[in-house]
Design a protein around this nucleic acid. Structure first.
Lengths: 356, 356
DNA sequence: TTGAAAGCGGTACCAT
DNA sequence: ATGGTACCGCTTTCAA
């Protein structure tokens, strides 16, 4: 009985107003749900809108209100379970609070991140959540902060930046597991991270541009020093940026005559690869090698042996960041906060006393 | 020397034009990179823009051009490795082609999905990629398609819908693994999926609203029938929507006196949970139970034994969907395509002959 | 309660 | 090559 509604150049408030026999302003009031309208008129406009299949144009609305109802998120790699879980936390909060999320992958590349932020700002997002690849050049972060739109740093962020930040207590976690390993007699403890340095080798924590990782390494080195272990810097391996890189690094390391007796993996993707290399090399965990990984990824509990991990409240990290951002969006102008969430070591069976 | 640039109510083309001593139209031309301008004027405008720290407003641009440079993506759950990997494929293509991605999680809920699409359409995304939770009521999909903005269905999509779709050859994969299990002597083969039916029990594939899963179950049942196995419908378990649900279902199933000798898990999250339950119950894989899972998740290769999986080209699925969408955006108006990507069975060690 | 009209920040057409 | 100006679709004074 009714034809296919003519869906050409989109129905506007003016059209609805016309059909309802009222002014544009009135129609806009009922359609936009603001101002006061008589019931009679409201019904007429609503009916007209339905008849015409009116679809509001958020873009136009954003133009005048200055708010887009959108938050921009920049992460290193959405494929990484860490980020996808944090993202879940962010999107959940966003939906609950009526926001929508624009996601951009930086690939952990500073230049891409920079342009991502520009793009997001140009699209007039109301706020930003960024997990900065490098903290060294943070100009674009400052710029974003100055743009007037709130910015929250996720999992990373330098102490020097006066910006809202949500992180886990990585340093504390690293100290804990390092102490535990040392207590078990380990002296040759390796730390493997994706973060790279210009020379592809590690000298000092200052070389590490990723806050969360830097803090972990500092904790690791401090505890080692405290225990009288020196030159542990040599045991820090950088550049495990892809599974292939990690595979190469782990293989060389574990084939070495002076191979470590324990390995700390900076994330679950690296931990998984180290686990695989052990298998290939016929190394038994935990007899030949103890393994601890950051991030309680799903696979860590089903391997043989299951692996001991640092459980980070990843979902909570995303959730907290989003909540903090929404507060700012709602006018909270208190000075920059630094939210630090607790981690927890989940002891499983991949850690044992050092081989004698 | 220069003060903090006054960042209040954003700099516009008019401001730049004024400062550069040209008209708004001219300034817009150089800022927008269209039309023709003399080098002299271009430099002046560029300089003025930099001095004022001009930031273009994409919203305003979108208003007049009608294109937002944005594509909307609706998936069931970004936390699921399947979707996060597909998302990676999508975002990579988007970035390469100059688009930006808005992500909404439907939580596999039809109502949420519906409103997500409305929201996205209201935000005037240029196109949509949706992984529909249910195919039964696809009105919102039709509506989206009719809105004039291209829509591509990801991993799911019914044959009856005349909409671009990118899927894997799930049916073929299911047939292959079912044949293999039967050849190994299995007769009691269970299939576990997250898809649910109103009565929380399975009767016929027609009850399954998720295309990819329905095709798999059809393949499974057909091959069983072909082999003379009847009433295999009883071995299909639905409702494994969360790890907790899966745990319950798998426990009941595997504790039963007439427990299956083989299990097919419809995704890696379910497969992982079944694996865990086997451990808890002291069931040895593959001696007591053979296990096959869809999705070659990272953990499947490091368990003991490693598990046999159906490898789906997940990244490729996202990539193909995004490419198809971009083509449409570039004016390709050929009739709706159905891209089917090949799967591959990765034989590992979780499948053996049925216990005698 | 309702209507008229001025923007929001660009784009694009039409003159000059 | 440049300037003037009418939109895009909605919100928001300000009057009536």
């Amino acid at each position: 009985m009714d034809q296919n509604p003519p869906r050409s150049p989109s129905v506007t408030v003016a059209d609805v107003a016309c059909k309802a026999g009222v002014s544009k302003a009135t129609a806009a009031r009922v359609l936009g749900g603001y101002g006061t309208v008589s019931d009679h008129v409201r019904d007429a406009v609503t009916a007209a809108a339905r008849a015409l299949d009116y679809q509001p144009n958020e873009l136009a609305r954003s133009m005048t209100t200055g708010r887009s109802g959108t938050i921009g998120v920049v992460v290193g790699d959405i494929e990484n379970p860490f980020f996808s879980l944090a993202m879940r936390g962010i999107t959940d909060v966003a939906r609950q609070t009526g926001f929508t999320v624009i996601l951009i992958n930086s690939g952990e590349d500073a230049a891409t991140e920079k342009s991502a932020i520009r793009t997001l700002l140009a699209k007039r997002v109301d706020g930003l959540i960024v997990s900065p690849a490098k903290e060294s050049d943070a100009d674009h972060l400052r710029e974003a902060a100055r743009s007037g739109r709130p910015l929250v740093l996720l999992d990373r962020g330098s102490e020097t930046l006066d910006i809202d930040t949500v992180i886990a207590d990585d340093r504390h976690a690293a100290e804990g597991i390092t102490r535990r390993l040392i207590a078990l007699g380990h002296r040759r403890i390796a730390y493997i991270t994706a973060c790279d340095t210009p020379e592809h080798r590690f000298r000092t924590p200052a070389d590490i541009n990723t806050g969360s990782v830097r803090r972990r390494i500092e904790g690791f080195l401090d505890v080692c020093l405290e225990a009288g272990l020196e030159d542990m810097e040599d045991w820090v391996h950088v550049g495990a940026v892809t599974p292939e890189h990690t595979h190469r690094i782990a293989t060389v390391m574990l084939k070495s005559s002076r191979r470590p007796t324990a390995v700390i993996a900076s994330d679950s993707v690296i931990g998984l690869e180290v686990f695989k290399v052990c298998r290939e090399l016929g190394l038994t965990i935990p007899n030949d090698l103890s393994l601890v990984s950051f991030h309680d990824a799903d696979w860590t509990s089903v391997t043989t042996p299951p692996v001991t991990v640092v459980r980070q409240p990843v979902y909570g990290l995303g959730e907290a960041a989003a909540k903090l951002l929404v507060e700012r969006l709602n006018g909270n102008t208190a000075k920059a906060t630094r939210v630090v969430l607790k981690t927890e070591v989940v002891e499983r069976a991949s850690v044992a006393a050092a081989p004698t």
